[in-house]
Amino acid sequence: MSSATPSATSTTRLAATILMLRDGAEGLEVFMVVRHHEIDFAAGALVFPGGKLAAGDEDPRVRLRCTGIAGLAPEQITLRVAAIREAFEECGVLLARARGEQRLLGPARLAVLGPRYRKALDKGDLGIADMLETEDLELACEELVPFAHWITPAFMPKRFDTHFYLAVAPAEQLAVHDGTELVDSLWLRPAHALSQAAAGLHTLVPATELNVKKLGFSNSVGAALRATRAQPVVTVVPEVVKKPQGMRLVIPAEAGYGVTEFALPQAPRKT
């Protein structure tokens, strides 16, 4: 199966998401949020912070305030900008530093920036370049490590071309859900997230579930980053195939998920 086709990308919207990582008492943990049950995509699901690109992410002024982008194509820079912006909007973590400094922003600065900019960015009242210029900040794009790339199957009514990144959670910053699109947030070990979904406590869409599983192959943040950097990202466009057990979604073995097929997700039951 090819990694991507022109038709698979022509009707999709670019999106970016971050798997924010830390080492907990029992091993690797990832930050996840629960989407509001009334929104129009993945309602009620346990997801990683992220979302579709905004017009301001492509503003040429942003690239002048990004570090770690040497050699990247314009689209790859924009995706990283979107991932960082979405994480800030949705959970208050901002992978940025004061211009010319080495350390990422601390809690005192975030306590001012969050109330001032998170909602305005989310509503599109301003672009991220405006915040960066006003506050004299730089986005730390080198903190993002490409982890996965999924394109929604062609039969789905809403389709996204989503790039997943790993990032180490800044130790001094507190991740908290926004209380609007997201109604809860948790630091979870990958195995715990999967067991909660299996028990029906949370919903995981297939891409999220398999990326959680893939992350769980590593026991620490360092191990996850090393494994990710050592393997190329293989684009996944699930294809529907008829099998003896019914219709299945098939993905490339080389994508590294340990499985090559899974059942079609069930439509939510109406209440």
Rank of each mutant, 00 (worst) to 15 (best):
R99G: 15
V212P: 06
A193R: 00
P244A: 00
V234Q: 09
Q173V: 03
V34W: 04
K242Q: 15
A197G: 01
R118H: 00
P157K: 01
A253D: 15
S220Q: 06
W187C: 02
A15L: 12
V176H: 10
F160P: 04
E181A: 09
A43H: 07
M20F: 15
G216V: 00
L194K: 09
L166M: 00
L46M: 10
R103Y: 11
A191C: 12
I84E: 07
A25R: 07
D161E: 06
L46A: 06
R109Y: 13
D125Y: 06
A70T: 10
I151A: 08
D23C: 02
G56E: 10
K214L: 10
S7Q: 15
D130M: 02
P232Y: 12
D161P: 02
R22I: 05
E181V: 00
R85N: 02
H36S: 03
L225K: 07
L28F: 08
L19E: 13
M20K: 14
A25P: 02
A55F: 03
I18D: 11
V62I: 04
Y165N: 01
L210N: 05
V240R: 15
R226L: 13
R116D: 08
T9E: 07
E58C: 11
R22Q: 02
K214R: 14
S3P: 01
V34A: 00
M20N: 15
K214Y: 11
R226I: 11
F31Y: 15
E142C: 08
K123V: 01
G127E: 02
V47A: 09
A167H: 03
R109A: 14
L194M: 07
K242W: 14
E133Q: 11
P146G: 08
A16S: 09
G27M: 05
C91P: 08
T67M: 13
G222C: 04
N211E: 12
L201V: 05
V33E: 05
G222R: 09
F48N: 12
M32I: 08
L139P: 00
A45C: 12
V233F: 03
V30N: 11
F262T: 00
V93A: 12
I69L: 10
S195A: 15
V168R: 11
G124Q: 04
R118Y: 06
L104K: 06
A148Y: 07
